[in-house]
C-alpha cells in the first residue's frame, strides 16, 4: 500500500491564521483542502513537507448577488457543477467543474483546490522509485527537464479544467495572506513556469472565487481526454462570448493543458471580435487559437495529436457557446454520450 509521509497537521480557524502559519513554516508546510491532488503527490513523494495546514474553515457556500456570484473556495466541484445558479448563469464553469476527474473526486475536490492544482508531467507524476530510476527532474530533486533536456525551464502542464474558464469569465479570487486580504484576477494568478506556476504568495490562501455575469455572455468548456472519466485534460478550451444579436462584442478563449499556465488565445479573441458567429469565422478563430499551443511529449497521447485537437476543442466550445442553449453539453467523440 502506498502511504503518506509523516506530517504534523494544523487546523487553523481562519484564513489569516492559516496564512500566518504558512508564512512561519515556509516551504516545508502546505495547505490541504480536498486533498485529491495533494495526497497522491505526497504518496509519490513529490513534495517534502513536515506540516499540513488544513483549510477546513473555507466557506462552502455559493452567494448569488444580482451581478456577482461568490463561490466559497471550499465548495466541492460536485456541488459547483450542480448548483442551479452556476449552471444557469455560468454554464461553462459548472460544466468544467463537472468534467474534473471522476465523481468521488469531485465530491472531495474543491473550487479553490482546482484553481491551485499542481502542474503535471508524466516524468514527474510518478512514484519516488520510478523517478529515482528515470533520474530526477528539475521539478523535484533533479536539475534537468526530462521532456526537454536542453531547456532551462520546467514544462509541466497546467491541468486545471476550471482555471481557464475562470479566466475566460474574468473571475477574481480573494486571497488572504498573513498581513491582509486582496483580490486578484484569476488571469494574474498563474505564471508560465512548470515549477513556480502560481503568481500568488505561497502563504496566501484562496478563499473564494467571484464570477460576474455580463448579460448575453455565453460560456462553454470543451475537454479532451482518453476516457469519459478519471483522466486529466490533454486539451481543453474555455470560451466566454458576449453577443449583440449574432455579432461578437467580446470574446475570451482560454486553453487548458497545452502550456504551463492556462493559455489565453488573444490573437483569436481579437480576430473574432466584431465578427458574426458563423461556421467560417469559428473555424478560422479556432485555427488562430491553436497556433500558440505547444504541447510537449509529457502527457497522454502524442503532442502532435494534442496540438491538432486544440483547434477542435476551441471550435467545439465556440459552437456550443453560440448555438446551444446554456448548460447543454456538446460531447466530443470518445466522450460520454448524452
Amino acid at each position: 500500500m502506498l502511504r503518506l509521509p509523516r506530517f504534523k497537521y494544523l487546523r487553523p480557524k481562519t484564513a489569516r491564521e492559516a496564512a500566518r502559519m504558512a508564512a512561519d513554516l515556509g516551504p516545508r508546510a502546505m495547505f490541504v483542502a480536498g486533498g485529491t491532488d495533494l495526497f497522491p503527490k505526497l504518496k509519490r513523494r513529490q513534495f517534502d513537507i513536515e506540516t499540513l495546514i488544513a483549510l477546513d474553515f473555507l466557506p462552502r457556500d455559493i452567494r448569488n448577488g444580482s451581478i456577482d456570484c461568490v463561490v466559497g473556495a471550499g465548495v466541492t466541484l460536485a456541488a459547483a457543477s450542480r448548483d442551479e445558479h452556476l449552471t444557469q448563469s455560468f454554464a461553462g464553469y459548472a460544466e468544467a467543474a463537472g468534467l474534473v476527474s471522476s465523481p468521488p473526486l469531485r465530491n472531495a475536490g474543491t473550487v479553490g483546490g482546482n484553481l491551485c492544482v499542481d502542474t503535471r508531467c508524466n516524468y514527474y507524476d510518478m512514484t519516488y522509485e520510478w523517478r529515482k530510476a528515470a533520474g530526477f527532474c528539475m521539478k523535484k530533486d533533479g536539475d534537468i527537464c526530462l521532456v526537454a533536456p536542453s531547456s532551462p525551464r520546467c514544462w509541466a502542464v497546467s491541468s486545471s479544467d476550471t482555471a481557464p474558464m475562470a479566466i475566460a469569465l474574468d473571475c477574481v479570487v480573494s486571497l488572504t495572506g498573513p498581513d491582509g486580504e486582496r483580490e486578484l484576477p484569476v488571469s494574474a494568478l498563474y505564471r508560465d513556469d512548470g515549477i513556480e506556476y502560481m503568481a500568488k504568495q505561497p502563504s496566501e490562501v484562496v478563499t473564494s472565487l467571484k464570477l460576474s455575469a455580463h448579460r448575453d455572455t455565453r460560456t462553454a468548456y470543451a475537454k479532451v481526454r482518453r476516457r469519459g472519466s478519471i483522466d486529466f485534460p490533454i486539451a481543453g478550451a474555455a470560451v466566454a462570448i458576449q453577443l449583440d444579436g449574432d455579432r461578437v462584442v467580446r470574446c475570451r478563449i482560454v486553453l487548458s493543458a497545452v502550456a504551463s499556465h492556462p493559455l489565453e488565445a488573444t490573437a483569436a479573441e481579437a480576430f473574432l471580435k466584431g465578427k458574426r458567429v458563423e461556421a467560417d469565422a469559428i473555424r478560422e478563430t479556432a485555427d488562430i487559437a491553436a497556433k500558440p499551443a505547444k504541447p510537449l511529449d509529457n502527457a497522454d497521447l502524442s503532442h502532435f495529436w494534442r496540438k491538432r485537437m486544440v483547434r477542435i476543442v476551441v471550435e467545439q466550445a465556440l459552437l456550443e457557446a453560440t448555438t446551444k442553449t446554456p448548460g447543454s453539453k456538446v460531447k466530443l467523440l470518445g466522450q460520454p454520450q448524452e
Binding site: 471522476s102 508524466n122 482518453r226 476516457r227 469519459g228 472519466s229 478519471i230 483522466d231 486529466f232 497522454d300 466522450q335 460520454p336
Partner: peptide, 11 residues
Amino acid sequence: MLEYKSPTFLD
C-alpha cells in the same frame, strides 16, 4: 491506473 487506460463505465 491513471495513465494505463482501462475503460470506464462511460467508455
